[in-house]
Design a protein around this nucleic acid. Structure first.
Length: 320
RNA sequence: GCCUCGGUAGCUCAGCUGGUAGAGCAAGGGACUGAAAAUCCCUGUGUCGGUGGUUCAACUCCACUCUGAGGCA
């Protein structure tokens, strides 16, 4: 029997972390973070990583598993490691509780997605980027010749995905499209786990107010110092880890390109936009049971609601 | 009290000599399969301060009025 898991999603700052700790205690669960920034060591305040104290003894996985200089961390890596953690947790009779706002990571655990065996290659990517810089539009033209189906799927401006498609071709000699299994529709294969998925929502205005508050809190807790350490370490600011909200803007400030005030305003704005994108992503996932936090008196009531959803659900998802 | 300049989108503002309005930012919607807190696509949301007048037609001209800033007494 495939293991059951509980998945808690929602936009940034909606209260996932606090809820997850209480929920873990109620369900005898251990937490697996599905957050593309919390995986990095040293990115603590800005990623809103729960502190050891906040974790209240509940074991957490997929935190601090990569170094900031790691250019290779990816969904595939996340999927591999999280899958092992899930096996291990459920083998001990505990419930794996996946919590996070990175939609792609969530899908990597809740759909039978197989990533191709073609790992990313920073050198090839850099070379391709260079070619594009020399002649705009050249990559898309090449993709049209090499892999017309992928080209059709992608917008000519979507450089990252175009680069990935060409990378697959260069590394493996096969087109991304030819790895058809990767794009298998979800119905054709069985999902790896029986997942109950709950999403936290609240009114947009309320969420934005929380985001504003949280960014101010992060600054108070020393986000500038945390970023200062990264700055002094002299890492290239193009590292994937340093694209994280907060770090990106404060590094720009530390390089003297913006005032602190401007940087903080930018963090707030970009975080709002990020939340909007997360909402768009999760909105189309019909498996999610949505709970509006405003409908519950307190965390206790909210978590009880989640528990009863878990008990009623068989984890097989919506039959659509 | 008098004079001057303003009042147009959430904000800052453009709208020549009359033909019911447009930029930037903010915002909203969407995509997403090995960088995903990344990357990309789409969208103007408006009693033009109010009332009356001139006109076929008023954001635009006139009168009055409300309101903001500055100046002179």
């Amino acid at each position: 029997m495939r293991p059951r898991i509980f998945v808690l999603v929602g936009p940034t700052a909606c209260g996932k972390t606090a809820a997850s700790i209480l929920l873990a205690k109620k369900l005898n669960a251990e937490i697996i973070s599905a957050d593309s920034i919390q995986v990095y060591r040293g990115l603590d305040i800005g990623s809103a990583k729960p502190t050891v104290q906040e974790r209240q003894g509940v074991p957490h996985y997929m935190l601090d598993v990569a170094d900031v200089t790691d250019k290779e961390f990816s969904v595939a890596e996340f999927q591999r490691r999280a899958a092992m953690d899930i096996q291990e947790i459920s083998s001990r009779g505990k419930l794996p509780l996946v919590v996070g706002g990175t939609g792609l990571y969530i899908n990597a655990l809740t759909y039978p997605l197989q990533f191709t065996s073609v790992p990313g290659d920073p050198n090839i990517r850099a070379a391709l980027r260079q070619q594009e810089a020399e002649e705009e539009g050249t990559l898309y033209k090449r993709l049209q010749q090499v892999d017309p189906q992928s080209a059709k799927r992608l917008h000519p401006n979507d450089s990252k995905r175009i680069i990935r498609a060409l990378e697959v071709y260069e590394v493996s000699g096969r087109t991304l499209t030819s790895y058809g299994v990767d794009f298998a529709n979800e119905a054709s294969a069985e999902p790896p786990y029986r997942a109950t998925i709950v999403g936290l929502t609240m009114e947009r205005a309320a969420l934005y107010a929380r985001i504003e508050q949280r960014v101010d809190d992060m600054m108070r807790m020393g986000l500038l110092n945390e970023t200062g350490r990264l700055f002094e370490a002299g890492y290239p600011h193009t590292l994937p880890a340093l694209q994280g909200l907060g770090y990106k803007q404060l590094l720009r400030h530390l390089r003297g390109e913006t005032t602190l005030k401007e940087a903080v305003e930018e963090i707030k704005r970009e975080t709002r936009r990020f939340a909007k994108r997360q909402i768009t992503w999760f909105k189309r996932d019909k498996r999610i049971h949505w709970l509006n936090t405003a409908d519950y008196e307190n965390m206790e009531a909210l978590c009880n609601a989640m528990c009863s959803i878990y008990k009623q659900d068989d984890g097989e998802g919506e039959k659509k």
